[in-house]
Design a protein around this nucleic acid. Structure first.
Length: 492
RNA sequence: CGGGAAGUAGCUCAGUUUGGCAGAGCACAUGGUUUGGGACCAUGGGGCCGCAGGUUCAAAUCCUGUCUUCCCGACCA
């Protein structure tokens, strides 16, 4: 079943009464960008801040971020990393120290020029990322091989003065984590780079139910100042790609610029080998665009702040609320369950929690109490099942797992359906137009071809996947001998 | 940064053409009746008409500037 068919069916399933609801959210087939904006607002994830491009992350949006954060943080700590907090400001002279780095970020840093009324001797920027702060600190504090490895991470906000902005996908300020590590050898640093990418992929696939392609960025797309950048790329519902997490290997480039040296076992001065890696609130944008539908958000159970919402029906009737609360008490050690006992109409609540993407709704009313059952309604398929109370402890967690798996399977199927191969530019352009998604195509390794492809189609190289596959012998653009297979797509 | 659209109650918008008392629906509060897909009746509260100038006896309305949001493009590791 194609995505379009699925959407039509979903709309049909809504029935007559929900037409007014549909008007609240633009249909994704009509205008995907508007659909995204509508969902973000209607699901109460964010509001806009007073400065252009800034956002207020509301309780529900932040709860989702907290769950993602907790999962990542747990894995960082399991792999030996420590959390720290570095300053918000970077003096200009420090930012200038690594040439490629400053060139990459200069166009989008925010500068502070005054403290109160007084002009500063040296202006300071608000961190767009913190490599230089960590670099300067490591230079002061690392002396011996015994100080290595240094495995630091920080959860912070950063500022990049973007021209156009959208909630989560591109905002002037965003939340993320940035890991910065130093190692005695290149091999160890490269292992770290890969390890962190694998953690990002794990969280994406197993918690957010977002399938990813792992690979390396081209020279053109890599991080400013890195030796190479590893990335996980995911595919949104509209066929555009989202860079979902990156892990950079710096070699000794920053160490040399910042003079981060250590004495090894033989008493020799050596530069450290570094990495940095980050994942941001941008991934929430990915979550919305991978799983969402015309009724709003769909949150995968493992990351959902509320996994099941109890909606009492005819709650004014004797015993209904008591039973509903008893149900919550019964379930709350098993799943993240909540109850809406407000005096809103049940239909209002149904729509509200569908908009918020809560994986399962549990209805309990007089008829259910009489039959000693509840009604479970899946958010992903809309399917209703009647479940005896004494089976609920087993069936509910099982259903949540099933939903989690189904969301991943659906997202993967969509990616597979829209991933095509192209051997020449005609086919490339046709695929991009007819089945927007990833295009697998061979590349000669020349940046000029990348630029040409971007100019002609507005698609960019997303990554050189670790899992290579030879789809032709020659470069899709210039026809010369191909070096490697690259995933291409229009990107966010 | 270019092109387009918009900003009036918490939300969606009417009113702007042709200057003359600040409006509706939803939401909110109170009371009552309701409750298996966005209930109903009654009463009530809520406004710097984005902001700053200007024109005028009089500005939501006309003029200038500016800020913000949305869509498209350019830019963006």
């Amino acid at each position: 079943m194609s995505e379009n068919d699925m959407n039509k069916n979903e709309v049909m399933m809504m029935g007559q009464k929900d037409k007014q609801f549909v008007e609240k959210v633009t249909a994704m087939e009509d205008d995907f960008a508007q659909w995204y904006t509508d969902v973000v607002k209607q699901a109460e994830l964010v509001d806009y801040g007073p400065v252009r491009g800034t956002m207020i992350i509301k309780p529900y949006g932040f709860a989702i971020w907290e769950n993602i954060r907790n999962e990542l943080d747990r894995k960082f700590k399991e792999t030996g990393h420590s959390n720290v907090s570095f300053p918000l400001f970077i003096p200009e002279s420090l930012l200038q120290k690594e040439k490629d780095h400053i060139e990459g970020f200069a166009p989008e840093v925010a500068w502070v020029t005054h403290g109160g009324e007084e002009e500063l001797n040296e202006r300071v920027c608000v961190r767009p990322t913190s490599e230089v702060l960590f670099g300067e600190y490591y230079a002061k504090t690392i002396n011996s091989y015994r100080d290595l490895p240094k495995l630091y991470n920080q959860w912070s906000n950063v500022v990049r003065w973007e021209k156009t902005t959208r909630p989560f996908l591109r905002s002037l300020e965003f939340l993320w984590q940035e890991g910065h590590t130093c190692h005695a050898t290149g091999e160890e640093a490269e292992q770290e780079t890969r390890q962190m990418l694998d953690i990002y992929a794990d969280v994406c696939e197993n918690y957010l139910a977002i399938p990813v392609v792992k690979g390396r960025k081209t020279e053109k797309e890599k991080f400013a100042g890195a030796e190479y950048t590893l990335t996980i790329e995911s595919l949104m519902h509209d066929g555009k790609a989202l860079q979902s997490g990156t892990s950079h290997y710096f070699g000794t480039g920053f160490a040399e610029a910042f003079d981060i040296r250590f004495l090894d076992e033989n008493g020799e001065q050596k530069p450290v080998h570094q990495t940095s890696w980050g994942m941001s609130t941008r991934i929430i944008g990915g979550l919305i665009m991978v799983h969402g539908d015309n009724r709003g958000l769909v949150i995968p159970p493992r990351i959902a702040p509320t996994q099941a919402m109890i909606v009492p029906v005819a709650q004014h009737k004797e015993g209904v609320l008591d039973q509903a609360y008893a149900l919550r008490d019964q379930l709350q050690d098993l799943v993240r369950v909540d109850i809406d006992a407000s005096d809103k109409m049940p239909g209002w609540k149904f729509n509200e929690y569908e908009m918020k993407g809560i994986p399962v709704r549990i209805e309990i009313g007089p008829k259910d109490i009489e039959k000693n059952q509840v009604v479970l309604v899946r958010r992903d398929t809309g399917e209703k099942t009647f479940v005896p109370r004494n089976e609920l402890d087993n069936r509910l967690p099982a259903l949540l797992e099933e939903i989690q798996q189904n969301l991943y399977d659906k997202a993967l199927a969509h990616r597979e359906e829209t991933t095509t191969t192209a051997v020449d530019m005609d086919e490339f352009a046709r695929n991009l137009d007819e089945t927007p998604g990833f295009i697998k195509a061979m590349w000669c390794g020349d940046t000029a071809c990348e630029e040409k492809i971007k100019e002609a189609t507005s698609a960019t190289s997303r990554c050189i996947p670790f899992e290579q596959e030879k789809v032709a012998d020659t470069c899709v653009c210039c026809g010369k001998k191909a070096k490697e297979m690259v995933y291409w797509a229009k990107a966010y």
